[in-house]
Write a protein that binds this DNA or RNA. Structure first.
Length: 227
DNA sequence: CGCCAGGCCGTGT
DNA sequence: ACACGGCATGGC
């Protein structure tokens, strides 16, 4: 899948943000929200000089909510982002450097305990903002695996399925690319989103999908057996 | 207009 | 455990 998508789309250069903190904000803001809308919120934050930890800390939650309004769910997302800032301040003296030095499993546990952070957001922060080697699964990957029968049906959308998709990605890359996990996880999720946007939305657009042929022909049996 | 988006959470069963 | 609905806004 990774190779077929990379050949079709090329390197994605993810995450589309400059700083680690901006990546974290994007991870929160893009929850069930089009990235285009997230960009509007980030532009508002930039204009308000609130794209940095210190800058954002100067805002009240209500002010933050007003700025991120374009990306929806502002009440919940602003509360979640404020909770993250408090967490970062209390646990790591406000330093993403210190935070990223902690063990992956511990960070995952702490992130998941925060409000508004589920598995995808936690893993996206770990991989793209903190540089930890961990796969990110999402709704696109679930649909892709569902439509290509890479996991036993039905592939319902719930927490257990997320874990299976996450584990499947981990196992598949561990088997084929043990030395380059982080880079592959990084690129793979970006490519997943690229092909998902084009061909695997809620309504299928299968025509021209680069996975339509390659996936089933070369890798489906082996991936299927690995659970 | 109606459908959809790079989820998460509370509630009911 | 799992199904199901709410959450909000803007793009297409």
């Amino acid at each position: 899948m990774h190779d077929a998508l990379l050949a079709a789309y090329g390197p994605q250069h993810w995450w589309p943000a400059k700083t680690r903190f901006e990546i974290i904000l994007g991870a929160y803001l893009t929850q069930n929200t089009a990235w285009k809308s997230v960009e509007r919120s980030l532009a508002n934050l930039r204009a308000a000089r609130a794209l940095s930890i210190a800058g954002l800390r100067r805002l009240t939650q209500a002010e933050l909510a007003a700025l991120i309004r374009p990306s929806g769910f502002a009440a919940r997302k602003s509360a979640a982002i404020c909770a993250f800032l408090d967490f970062l301040e209390c646990e790591y003296a406000g330093s993403l450097n210190k935070m990223s030095a902690a063990p992956t499993a511990m960070l995952e546990q702490k992130l998941l305990a925060l409000p508004g952070v589920g598995p995808e957001t936690a893993h996206a922060i770990l991989l793209y903002a903190l540089g930890h080697p961990i796969p990110v699964a999402d709704e696109y990957l679930r649909r892709i695996c569902e439509r290509h029968h890479l996991l036993p049906a039905p592939l319902v959308k719930n927490h257990r399925t997320y874990s299976q998709l996450h584990a499947l990605t981990q196992l598949a890359f561990a088997a084929e690319a043990p030395a380059a996990h982080r880079l592959h996880f990084n690129e793979f999720h970006a490519l997943t989103v690229a092909v998902g946007k084009a061909h695997c939305g809620r309504t299928a657009q299968c025509a021209g999908c680069p996975l339509a042929f390659d996936l089933g022909k070369n890798h489906a049996p082996a991936i299927h057996r690995s659970q």
